[in-house]
């Protein structure tokens, strides 16, 4: 069923500003707007003049050779790095003076290329930590076990199990997060990100280390998550099968600059993109 859905291409339309988004998101304000975003590390322009507009329920891909600056863009969007140029609007809010925590509260959640789970804690606790700002009670309620403690803990437990069910991980709830296999750790990171109730989900190489079967499942799940949560997804991925299969818009990065933008078909036939990738292949072959 999802197989068919994937082949069904989204109709992309152009905003008055020139940005391209899926037609179904046209009536709604964009969830993310970057303009002229850039950062320098002591003279090295890691990202330069990056512009992107994301529709409310768009799945977009960010691709490019190693060291192109993809992860750096995620770090700029989430304020792990402070941009030296340009601006980022999340749901219309300027992130200029925001911290990493503010960005999370504004509705952006992410996963990490090098997995960053709370490794000594259980799978369920990892998700509960994702629920930190969703189901709250204060320190004194926790220490003195006031009635709210029990009701909120129960809510957290139920919500965590519900979220783990997305990836059929409910039976792993008591396992130590650090001891899970690689693929499961990546899935848990997505669940934890979803627990923060985001509007925009950033996935940094979600299929890395997964076998083809797991990747196939992941593609279905990303589509399902988008449909049921009605959120936008921006993903970095080297697996072209995944990118071409589920992304509606794709942005290609090389040496910190955008070299191409468009639908999967447009990107696949773009000579500049082919050169960037083939050129790299040649180097690798030598």
């Amino acid at each position: 069923m999802n197989e068919d859905k994937r082949r069904q291409r989204t109709k992309m339309v152009t905003y008055p500003s020139g940005a391209v988004i899926p037609e179904r998101d046209l009536g709604k304000s964009p969830v993310l707007e970057c303009s002229h975003l850039g950062i320098e590390f002591g003279g090295l322009k890691a990202v330069e003049d990056f512009n992107l507009v994301l529709g409310r329920t768009e799945i977009a891909g960010l691709i490019g050779p190693n060291g192109a600056g993809k992860t750096t863009i995620f770090n700029l969007l989430t304020k792990v790095y402070q941009p030296t140029h340009g601006s980022v609007l999340i749901d219309g809010l300027d992130t200029q003076s925001m911290t990493v925590v503010d960005v999370s509260k504004a509705g952006v959640a992410r996963t990490f290329q090098n997995i960053r789970l709370f490794g000594n804690m259980s799978v369920e606790d990892n998700v509960r930590i994702g629920l930190h700002n969703q189901i709250k009670y204060d320190m004194f309620t926790g220490i003195f076990r006031l009635p709210r403690y029990f009701s909120r803990e129960k809510q957290q437990h139920e919500k965590a199990m519900e979220l783990l069910d997305i990836f059929n991980m409910a039976d792993l709830a008591d396992a130590k997060a650090g001891s899970l296999p690689y693929g499961a750790q990546r899935r848990l990171e997505i669940v934890r990100a979803l627990a923060t109730n985001p509007k925009l989900l950033l996935l940094d190489e979600p299929a890395a280390g997964m076998n083809p079967h797991e990747t196939e499942e992941l593609m279905d799940n990303i589509l399902r998550i988008r449909d049921s949560f009605q959120i936008a997804v921006l993903l970095i991925e080297h697996d072209m099968n995944l990118v071409m299969g589920i992304c509606e818009g794709i942005c290609v990065l090389n040496f910190g600059r955008v070299i191409a933008k468009g639908t999967p078909e447009e990107i696949q036939s773009n000579p500049v993109v082919i050169e960037a990738y083939l050129g790299k292949k040649k180097e690798a072959g030598q």
């Binding site: 792990v80 990490f112 960053r116 700002n133 320190m139 926790g142």
Partner: peptide, 22 residues
């Protein structure tokens, strides 16, 4: 409790803890 889990989250992976709003 919620606060204790947040404390341990910061210990295990600080950046990840910030990224979920802690």
């Amino acid at each position: 409790s919620r606060s204790g889990r947040a404390i341990m989250a910061v210990r295990d992976a600080r950046i990840a803890a910030e990224s979920v709003g802690i």
